[in-house]
Design a protein around this nucleic acid. Structure first.
Lengths: 249, 249
DNA sequence: GCGCCACTTTGATCAGGATCAAACCGGTAA
DNA sequence: TTACCGGTTTGATCCTGATCAAAGTGGCGC
């Protein structure tokens, strides 16, 4: 399999980077950006390729620019659990640690923007805006990790599937700058097996529950991957979450 | 029930605070510490008392000084999942957000060191050492949350119990500055129900699996709460984790 | 001492998902 | 066209952990 990969976006310059408003560099002043630009380089991966294995020495930290990567753990006997989905603007690696705690795998074709670790750490000390933004992002990640723990620990298979669909729907709407609404549709970026790994289920159970949701009219399928949501409210009701959740924004 | 609570440590001054080397203030210079000292105050809770409910407005952030608190989520139908155990030096709340995402409850008698949120946020901007330390702590929390996702998503009931015991054993050894060793013993800080909430199980299953581990000679019990570990290696083998894990520290 | 109450253990049964197995679908290489 | 292959669906059965129920334990106030 020949690696024939080009950059998925047109330029290598920060000023027209698709994630410049969300990534770790979002708060940087022009001069800070310039210093970041000096230590950055891009890498591309095909769907399925590993980016990092747990325990590997990491010589860089990075931002996802386009595509999706998964963060996962595997036990000796082969059981695996996905512990995060890395979407565009998400951060890979951590300053101050040089071996990766988890596997990172490209789920779709993937482009990441890497910073050499040493220089990045130096930059963090001298330019506060990077650290501030990274703290913000990490606190958000921690909150979503904790929300996911409820899904893994307490939800039924059907609720798990509905929760995953709801998350993908919401994020997809955000990406296309539409508000999520009835009749919306999106492509599942994950195979049944990857969904199972994310949800702590088997792929058979995932398949069965998706069929069940289809039979119940909660979702419609166009092919294996394209999902149509006739009623978001009905989908949300299946997640088990408080639908009229807490606050009025 | 009358609230008759005194500070569990002797002084309110930072210089002899038991968590000064691990907490969010660990990196502070004397002058930074002084400014922190001006905005801090202590609060005490009895075991079982709530500290914050999810959705509450938070007027402070805080560090756990002594005791244990739990961080948890509850669904409308009453299913609950603990998403974190807060031990001495752990941080509660987050700058830049004013409603709590999770419930915080005192598991044991608890003392926390609170900082008024507004002034704390101002201080974070002007003194980089607080933000640096908070980032470090948050990244560590994120790693452990992700490790816990493997436990919740993929481990059997027996492996879950063994994992929890191993974690408590390790932390208890760290606290008493002993290295964990065969024959060590410690008190379970959690009821069977709290363990169940942490592990995504029912309390009956927790009880049965503890009995099973006892019968198998992996642990011994002295009363309901005190646990003796004759062989750490055997306990670790029950967790399902890679026992000869990766690195030699 | 007694009784109460919170916590825990143990038992019997049930059911949700796992496991094992086979067939199905759609794309692509020969 | 055919065969193959990765991904998916569907079926039959099993088993782990949930649920319902009851009894046991120990600490504490009276």
């Amino acid at each position: 399999m020949k690696a024939k990969l080009d950059l998925a976006f047109d330029s290598k310059e920060c000023w027209n980077c698709p994630i410049k408003h969300q990534a770790v560099c979002a708060r940087c002043e022009p001069d800070e950006l310039k210093r970041l630009e000096e230590i950055k380089y891009y890498r591309n991966y095909e769907a399925g390729q590993p980016v990092i294995w747990a325990g590997d020495h990491m010589e860089f930290v990075a931002s996802v620019v386009t595509g999706i990567a998964s963060l996962s753990q595997t036990m000796e006997d082969g059981r695996t659990q996905m512990v995060g989905l890395l979407l565009p603007s998400d951060f890979i690696g951590r300053p101050g640690r040089d071996s990766a705690p988890f596997d990172v795998v490209a789920v779709s074709d993937l482009t990441i923007c890497c910073f050499r670790k040493g220089p990045f750490e130096d930059l963090m000390v001298s330019t506060p805006h990077i650290g501030t933004r990274l703290l913000e992002m990490t606190l958000d990640e921690l909150d979503s990790a904790r929300e996911w723990m409820l899904v893994l620990g307490r939800k039924t298979a059907r609720e798990k599937i509905a929760s995953l669909l709801a998350i993908i729907a919401r994020r997809d709407a955000a990406l296309t700058r539409n508000s999520p609404k009835d009749g919306m549709h999106f492509d599942l970026p994950l195979t049944r097996e990857a969904m199972a790994d994310y949800l702590g289920l088997t792929l058979e159970t995932v398949s069965r529950q998706i069929s069940a949701l289809k039979k119940a009219g909660i979702i419609e399928l166009d092919g294996k991957r394209r999902v149509i949501v006739p009623s978001l409210e009905k989908l949300m009701a299946e997640t088990g979450d408080d639908v009229d959740g807490g606050f009025i924004p």
